[in-house]
């Protein structure tokens, strides 16, 4: 195995990289110092914030649940009426809904995979 580089001589590119990394680290350290000088919320403030948010989430959940039940009641009632009056149309709608749901799932999984791959041109 031959060595074409003198081990004492440092790679200029590597030195440049180290210098750049050091400059970046110094900059981030300055921002850390700025952060240390910013006051932090107390434990009580954090507790109150979490309690308030929990209460809000619970309220939102009940509201959404109520809307869901109302919507479900309309859909079920509508479906039953349709099934009773127009059985063929009812079956047609069920098939169309099934195809639509499958298409939606396939499309969303495709876009999610595409997003995961990301853009390599950046």
């Amino acid at each position: 195995m031959t060595r074409d580089k003198n081990p004492v001589q440092a790679d200029p590119q590597l030195l440049q990289d180290q210098e750049l990394t050091q400059k970046l680290l110094n900059s981030w350290n300055q921002l850390d110092q700025l952060n240390e000088r910013t006051p932090m919320p107390s434990e009580e403030d954090m507790f109150q914030m979490l309690v308030h948010h929990k209460r809000r989430l619970k309220h939102k959940l009940w509201k959404e649940l109520a809307w869901l039940w109302i919507l479900a009641a309309f859909v079920i009632a509508g479906s039953l009426i349709l099934m009773h009056r127009e059985l063929i149309l009812y079956i047609g709608i069920q098939i169309a809904l099934g195809i639509g749901a499958a298409g939606y799932l396939i499309l969303t999984s495709f876009y999610r995979k595409k997003e995961m791959r990301g853009s390599t041109s950046e």
Partner: peptide, 25 residues
């Protein structure tokens, strides 16, 4: 236990804030 959660999050608050400050500037 919300009190434990508040304590836990407060312990990491400065770290998250420091990270966010460097990230968003």
């Amino acid at each position: 236990n919300t009190e434990a959660l508040a304590l836990l999050l407060r312990q990491h608050y400065a770290m998250v804030r420091g990270y966010m400050l460097k990230l968003t500037m």
